[in-house]
């Protein structure tokens, strides 16, 4: 199948496979990501969905926002569930019981369902080599149950289970670098993306669908409820996440790391933190050291990432 051109005018004419009328909060990043993913391709898609915001808000009783076959079974098993669907497809095609229509399989999960409770199921499905893509919309906490910390919650963030209090100033731990952990699985394609860079995201989706085997994509997904930001800030914040190098855009294809979008000018992390109420306490004078720590960590991670890109010789091709 030829990869379709990513022209806004053409894309806007395409059929919505994820429709309006769902019940996600206004300004949520997740449905934007789902739309971009489904818009990037004309391949038939079957998706599974971990329990979470996206799932509970898009298929309620007799209403569904999904115009593609879609299955939700539980919280921690979107990867295992879609791996079963993919296995059945493979089996029936192999036996000649159905025609091969080059169906693509996607599992969608939030960070709780991906980094934490669904991590084993994800790791297992990737190791087994199913021809599927796992897409995590990472909003950095358990937003569906009311903003509880997850292993994706950034250091210092205020959540309902690590509230910024008199003694403990928000989440004491660093977030887990899941994208790198997935790359360590040695699967053919891993990428990090942002809905603000829609072209980059859609290109990655297109590329992933041309690769056989397991793929993983981690997409930053602003949540105004949890991030304590304005409802129209999702795209601005996901852009700032990239521009501050908090959320670098890169891919790891067959082990080779490449930074896909390099900010023209690296902005200070406070630009990303400031518009978010979850980091408000970090701007109090007594927490100044935490802000410095966050900046230092980002600088060091960005440095490492650039060195890796240089190691693979992909750096100058920006």
């Amino acid at each position: 199948m030829t990869t379709k051109p990513l022209k806004l005018r053409e894309l806007a004419k395409g059929e919505d496979r994820f429709t309006h009328g769902h019940r996600m909060c206004s300004g949520c990043g997740a449905p934007i990501i789902v739309k971009q993913v489904l818009m990037a391709t004309d391949y038939p898609i079957i998706a599974s969905n971990a329990t979470g915001c996206l799932e509970v808000s898009t298929c309620i009783q007799q209403y569904t926002a999904w115009k593609i076959p879609w299955i939700h079974s539980a919280f921690e098993n979107a990867a295992a569930t879609i791996s079963g669907v993919e296995a059945m497809y493979k089996s029936l095609v192999k036996q000649g019981k159905i025609e091969d229509k080059q169906v693509k399989f996607i599992a969608f999960g939030g960070d709780g369902g991906t980094y934490d409770i669904g991590f084993q199921s994800l790791s297992g499905a990737m190791e087994r080599g199913h021809d599927m893509m796992y897409i995590c919309y990472d909003n950095g906490a358990y937003m569906n149950t009311g903003i509880q910390r997850s292993s994706a919650t950034p250091f210092g963030a205020n959540t309902t289970t690590c509230p910024a209090g008199d003694i403990i100033p928000g989440k004491p731990q660093q977030r887990k670098d899941l994208t790198r952990i997935m790359a360590a699985h040695g699967i053919p394609y891993v990428a990090q993306a942002s809905p603000a860079h829609w072209m980059d995201l859609m290109k990655k989706v297109q590329k992933a669908f041309e690769i056989k085997g397991p793929k993983f994509m981690n997409v930053i997904s602003p949540c105004n409820r949890g991030w304590r930001s304005r409802t129209d800030d999702a795209i601005m914040l996901s852009k700032l996440a990239v521009d501050t190098c908090y959320w670098p855009l890169y891919e790891v294809e067959n082990g080779v790391l490449k930074i896909t979008v390099k900010p023209k000018e690296k902005k200070p992390i406070v630009d990303f933190l400031k518009p978010q109420g979850r980091f408000k306490h970090l701007f109090a004078p007594e927490n100044a050291a935490m802000l410095l720590q966050i900046q230092a960590d980002i600088d060091s991670e960005w440095e490492k990432l650039q060195k890796l890109a240089a190691f693979y010789g992909t750096e100058e091709k920006q």
Binding site: I46, I71, N77, S83, G84, V85, A87
Partner: peptide, 27 residues
Amino acid sequence: DTELVLVESEHSAMSACIGAAAAGGRV
């Protein structure tokens, strides 16, 4: 002719069975 899915836990075994059965075949 079975496609055998050798999962990483029984939870995933039943999850994969659910996906496969919903897909439409004998599991």
